[in-house]
Amino acid sequence: MNWKEALQRLKDGNERFVGTKPSTPAQDQTTIKGLANGQAPYAIILSCADSRVAPELAFDTGLGEVFVIRVAGNVANTSSIASIEYAVAHLGTKLIVVMGHQSCGAVGAAIQGGDAGPNLNKLVSYIQPAVEKLGKDAPVGDIVKENANIAAGTLTAKSDIIANAVASDGVKIVTGYYHLDTGSVDFE
């Protein structure tokens, strides 16, 4: 499946989810047994760890269909980049989505600033460039979207595997924004 087909499949799934007509495909014992020997997800999704944002549900997908990496603020750090590299290099997935969401707490922490301890400070440091670019008074949603754009750029800047796949293997990186109040996803 190429990236355009994969993106359309995500859009169609989100439309079903928002329309309260999810089909919840591929969640049965036959699917589970079929996936025991391998996987071939059609999309990679770097998403926030927020409990209200579940990409598998938001895109009405079943087991084995999407490769999801969840980390607060959907940041492109060493671990998330390595996970994406694996899916690109070993699973042949052609679409990468970096998805932020409405009212992101990690973005809120970056805006607020201050000392939150070494681990959270490190995480927030990945989001800080979006805050600095738009300013602390910018709407949170705009900062969330800019953070997703920066993370998407980081994927190719910090990974030769991803950069080469984008340049010569038909891989596409897009950003998305999940609306907590409706469940809909806007793609950029």
Rank of each mutant, 00 (worst) to 15 (best):
151 A>V: 06
17 F>Q: 06
30 T>Y: 08
84 I>W: 01
88 V>L: 07
88 V>F: 06
43 A>V: 06
70 R>V: 00
68 V>Q: 01
73 G>M: 07
178 Y>E: 10
157 A>Q: 15
155 L>V: 05
71 V>N: 08
141 G>L: 01
44 I>F: 01
168 S>V: 05
162 I>Y: 09
9 R>Y: 09
40 A>M: 12
180 L>E: 11
73 G>L: 07
163 A>K: 15
180 L>A: 11
69 I>Q: 14
64 G>W: 00
182 T>I: 08
57 L>A: 11
141 G>V: 00
9 R>V: 05
39 Q>V: 01
125 S>M: 06
163 A>T: 00
96 I>V: 14
91 L>P: 10
79 S>P: 00
184 S>P: 02
41 P>Y: 03
97 V>P: 07
2 N>W: 07
132 E>V: 07
93 T>A: 02
130 A>R: 11
146 E>R: 14
100 G>R: 04
107 V>G: 05
119 N>A: 13
70 R>A: 00
106 A>F: 01
152 A>F: 04
137 D>A: 15
129 P>H: 11
75 V>E: 03
8 Q>N: 15
150 I>A: 01
178 Y>P: 12
32 I>F: 13
44 I>K: 04
72 A>Y: 03
167 A>D: 14
9 R>T: 13
123 L>S: 02
34 G>Y: 06
111 I>Y: 00
93 T>W: 02
184 S>W: 02
93 T>Q: 04
175 T>D: 11
24 T>K: 14
188 E>L: 08
48 C>Y: 10
120 L>W: 02
21 K>Y: 05
178 Y>F: 15
46 L>E: 01
76 A>R: 05
149 N>E: 14
65 E>N: 04
175 T>I: 07
176 G>W: 09
160 D>Y: 07
159 S>N: 10
158 K>Y: 07
